[in-house]
Amino acid sequence: MADIEAAKRAFDRYDLDKDGQITAAEYKKVMAELGDFYTTESVAQAVINADDTDGDGQLSWDEFWAKLQG
């Protein structure tokens, strides 16, 4: 089981505008800040879509946490 506090910090790192959702643009920007300049917005969207259970094209905290739970 993932540590919820560490998971919340990780989620908050990607949720740049603090609206409770991670967008492809936010994901791409953080990945670039972490040194991964190869993540395009379309790749970021594909990563998000893999765990986006409500189909809104964004990753919510609940979706993020569910992914970590396996």
Rank of each mutant, 00 (worst) to 15 (best):
M1K: 11
M1T: 08
K8Q: 14
R9L: 13
R9E: 14
A10F: 09
A10H: 03
F11M: 07
D19P: 02
G20L: 05
Q21G: 02
Q21A: 09
I22E: 01
I22F: 07
A24T: 01
A24E: 01
E26H: 07
E26N: 06
Y27T: 01
V30M: 13
V30T: 11
A32N: 10
E33W: 05
L34W: 06
L34A: 12
G35P: 07
G35H: 09
F37E: 14
Y38S: 14
Y38E: 06
Y38I: 01
T39G: 00
T39F: 01
T39I: 15
T39Q: 04
E41P: 02
E41M: 11
S42I: 11
A44R: 01
Q45P: 00
Q45M: 11
A46M: 10
V47Y: 03
N49E: 10
N49R: 08
A50Y: 02
A50M: 11
D51Y: 12
D51P: 00
D51E: 06
T53S: 13
T53I: 10
D54M: 09
G57E: 05
Q58D: 07
Q58T: 13
Q58N: 14
S60Y: 09
W61M: 10
D62G: 05
D62L: 11
D62E: 15
D62K: 08
E63G: 07
E63C: 09
F64A: 00
L68Q: 08
Q69N: 14
